[in-house]
Write a protein that binds this DNA or RNA. Structure first.
Lengths: 183, 183
DNA sequence: ATGATATGTAAACAAATGTTTACATATTCA
DNA sequence: TGAATATGTAAACATTTGTTTACATATCAT
């Protein structure tokens, strides 16, 4: 493996293990170089290729990309050398900043493909629009339902025909913006 | 807001903005303290409370918890002051280390509640067990199906009765370990 | 084989950065 | 009100850390 790629991997591993970036001397030690000059040259090259960002003159002034997962449309090769096509972006947790996950209990939302055991991603909000799927408190019960306006009345509508519409007073907690299911 | 909480927030914001932790002097500047001693005392207190971790004597040796989203069973209060009960852990992206997301196209897996437009979380693997949902290449098509053994033959079974079983040769790319849907 | 370029070493230096000491001020409690 | 404790300031010092200079070695192209 080329030194440059060794250095990039060393940085990524260090951030994973320690939670902050390595110093130039720590990188040198890890990949068995004796001089900080050599490491500096490689870091500057990695920066010019856009693989890292450098902040000159600052201790540990190396920024790597935040952890993310690639989103792909097609895989052209499997292990040991994965290859993707139609890479459509990457997934990071920061898109759900300030959100929380709510465990789904029950089958009241199955027509919206939200099933018992799923987790919904909830963006806290005080209000929501007609037809949005929301998290609300009814009394001291937390529930997931579709917000519907019937005349001037706002109600909570299950997405399962066997469940009744909820007409009691409720407090909007947030909007459902995603679903996560583990298999 | 107490100085200690200001410091904690300053660190979190700095890591978000810069991608690495602040120095003691940078924290001091941010919260308008003039001495590094005062910041050091607060940092040591935060560390003793387990809110951060300190690495003594190292530049920027402050570790905060990786970004995560709380998983809750119930919400007891909404905005402006969210309160949770039945907190069941937190969600981080690191559980899907080395995985990728594959966009779902088509309705072949709807009996498994995997719908067109979803993204499946794929853990790369060369093999899989009978009955697992996998990602496979058939020719140069990437597909999601359930792996089934019929006699000695391995086939790819759709989870939609209107689709045919695939008996052609295929290559296992990985196992589906989760589903993500954005609303 | 030779010259050009890339990569690495060694050392010095400058700056960044954390810790410590001595003291001042603010807050809390009896 | 006074003592104890918490919090902050200033400055010095030690260590960490990045950059630079001068040079050596390895690799590549002609």
């Amino acid at each position: 493996m080329k030194t440059k790629n060794k250095i990039l991997k060393a940085i990524q591993d260090f951030v994973d293990d320690y939670g902050y970036p390595p110093s130039i001397r720590e990188i040198a030690k890890k990949i068995h170089l004796k001089s900080t000059k050599a490491v500096k040259v490689h870091l500057d090259n990695l920066a010019s290729e856009g693989l890292i960002e450098r902040v000159s003159g600052q201790a540990r002034g190396i920024r790597i990309k935040p952890k993310s997962i690639p989103i792909v449309g097609r895989v052209t090769a499997g292990l040991p050398e994965l290859a993707f096509e139609e890479v459509e972006g990457s997934f990071t947790i920061s898109q759900w900043r300030d959100c929380f996950l709510l465990k789904v209990k029950g089958n009241s939302m199955i027509n919206a493909h939200i099933y018992d055991g799923d987790m919904v991603v909830v963006k806290p909000a005080r209000n929501a629009l007609d037809n949005e799927i929301i998290v609300a408190n009814v009394g001291d019960e937390t529930t997931i339902k579709r917000l519907r306006r019937i005349g001037k009345e706002l109600v909570l509508q299950p997405e399962n025909d066997t469940y009744p519409i909820i007409r009691e007073a409720f407090e909007v907690i947030g909007k459902v913006i995603g679903v996560i299911r583990k298999l």
